[in-house]
Simulated assay, not measured.
Amino acid sequence: MFIVSFCFPFHYQLSFWGSRSGQDIQEGVNYASAAAGIRDETGQQLGVRISFTTQVNNYKNTISRIVNIPGDEDSATDYLSKSIYSVGVGSNDYLNNYFMPLHYSSSRQFTPEQYAQTYAFGARKLALIGVGQIGFRPNALAQNSPNGKTCVRRINSANQIFNNKVKGLVNEFNNYYSDAKFIYIDAYGIFWDLINNPSLLVLGWQMLGDVVLEETMDK
């Protein structure tokens, strides 16, 4: 998932990159593609998808278009610095790559630690989303669970290695880029909280509904 909101208030439904034209891109763009991952080959067994590398290149193309709207690079840079970037990657690289040895060789080439080892133009506010507990996902259960119901702990253990490295990167980025703000969203922990306390999900939707209602009334 790679989403950019270029304006405020945040738009809850952002159009796909290919459908944006002219000044519409100022409302924000969704570059995400189902099944895609950090690695270019990830998800290829499912068919056509837009790799993360291509998503970043699409973002670069958007930047060149944004520069033309205000007419100069300084104004465009200031505009981009106020935007919010949401990047969530990694889960497909495990479910649709590393843990599919019949389709990919990555699990034979790398240990989970090595695999977890395995970018920004104008971005100043970025939310990096960790990988959730994908050992509970239906395709993980179908392919790796002995009874189709039990959580696949080795998958969760592997993506926790990835999450810990992302956390470390967030800290490094915040220390290195003093004019930017990076935050880590603990999708793994959020999912665990919901399993143990489902009422949190209801509360979350209620809070989201209140925000949407408030914005609607303000317009």
Rank of each mutant, 00 (worst) to 15 (best):
I69D: 01
Q143L: 13
E113N: 14
A76S: 12
E113M: 14
R124D: 01
T150S: 13
M100C: 11
N144I: 00
I134S: 06
T118C: 14
S157R: 14
K165C: 08
I161E: 14
Y119I: 07
G168L: 13
S106Y: 12
G88T: 08
D74V: 09
F99L: 06
Y115S: 05
G71N: 03
S83R: 06
V67Q: 09
V87Y: 05
G122C: 04
D78G: 15
K149R: 09
S91C: 08
N144L: 13
G135S: 10
A116C: 10
G90K: 00
S106C: 05
A140C: 05
N159D: 09
N97A: 15
G71M: 09
V152H: 03
N156E: 05
A142S: 12
R154L: 05
Y104S: 04
A158D: 03
Q109V: 05
G122E: 01
S81Y: 04
L141I: 01
S106P: 02
E73Q: 15
E73G: 10
N139V: 08
D78P: 02
N159T: 11
S105M: 09
K165F: 07
D74W: 11
S81C: 11
Q143W: 08
S106G: 05
P146V: 03
F162A: 09
G135Q: 04
A142E: 07
V131G: 04
Y98D: 01
V87E: 01
N92D: 11
E113C: 10
S107M: 12
Q143M: 11
N159G: 04
M100R: 07
A158W: 00
V170H: 02
S86M: 13
A123V: 14
S106V: 01
N144W: 07
S105F: 11
R65D: 04
N139Y: 13
R124Q: 12
G88M: 06
L141T: 01
N97F: 01
Y94Q: 10
R137T: 13
S81T: 06
Q133I: 00
F162C: 02
S106W: 04
T118H: 15
N97Q: 15
A158Q: 03
S75G: 03
R153S: 12
A76P: 00
G71K: 08
Q133A: 07
D78F: 08
A142Q: 11
G132R: 04
S64D: 15
L102W: 08
I129H: 02
Y79M: 14
L80M: 15
N97I: 03
Q117K: 15
C151H: 08
T111Q: 14
G88C: 12
K149L: 07
G132E: 03
T150Y: 02
L126I: 14
Q117V: 08
I66E: 01
K82I: 02
Y119M: 13
Q109K: 14
R154Y: 10
G71Q: 10
T118K: 14
A123N: 12
D78I: 07
L126A: 08
V170W: 03
K125N: 15
A120D: 10
V67D: 06
S106A: 11
S91V: 02
R153I: 00
T150N: 11
Q143Y: 10
T150W: 03
V89T: 09
G168K: 15
L95N: 00
A158M: 09
S75C: 02
R65I: 01
G90L: 06
